[in-house]
Amino acid sequence: MKALAARRHDRRAPIVLLLLALLLTGGLYAVLAPTSADAAAAAPSASDIQTGEKLFQANCATCHGPSGAGTASGPSLIGVGAAAVNFQVGTGRMPAQQNGPQIEAKPVQFDDEQISQLGAFVASLGAGPAVPTEDQVDPSKGNSANGMALFRTNCAMCHNAVGAGGALSRGKFAPKLWETSPTHLYEAMLTGPQSMPVFSDTNLSPDEKRDIIAFISEQGDVAPGGLDLGSLGAVSEGLWAWIVGIGLLIGAAVWIGAKSS
């Protein structure tokens, strides 16, 4: 007892206590906090479709019409399938808020369960592409070499050689792909959102789509040459050559030319 009391006044004691408390809190949270629903959905039940319809009427019907047949503000959703819903709502693009040249990704407004319910409802309006399975979008099962060859021909012109994004006409753009989930990548290819063409399974087969996903998952990571400077090509390289290179060298020149004190 005395030994413990003797050590109790060590000046590092508060820090240790703090760390222990944090560990405890963190551990409790990890165990007890609710987890998000699993991505692999079971077949939608009738109640899913009903709940989905309610969500739809509340959030989507204004623009897409109460029966999803479309209005002047939004296209028809008949036949777009659960995949389109999972993509659009899952990336936060839908419900659309702002008018602009294109609808942009923003914070997601619904949780996974609600998204799958909305998807179930829209799928019930007319047959369309379904949400892909885990297996279909698993990057480790794809061939990134074949993926790159396909990406180069079909995707790089809009999204840039490594998926860093690019400009389209009139303020539209093809976004950066590095943070997009494999499922959303698959769905975007399949459903052709906004300006993006539709890459149906007869255009790019499911295996080919997976190869492309494997390729994209390797991008935006480690650049062998050092800092990737945004992977934007020669313009950013030229800009940095001026800023860093000429900047440092003119600085050196000023130092060399200056009189020493």
Binding site: M157, C158, G166, L168, S169, G192, Q194, S195, M196, P197
Partner: peptide, 15 residues
Amino acid sequence: PVALYEQQTHHLLCP
């Protein structure tokens, strides 16, 4: 290569 196809406007854009 005029490769960029904008589906909604059916325009082809050369990058």
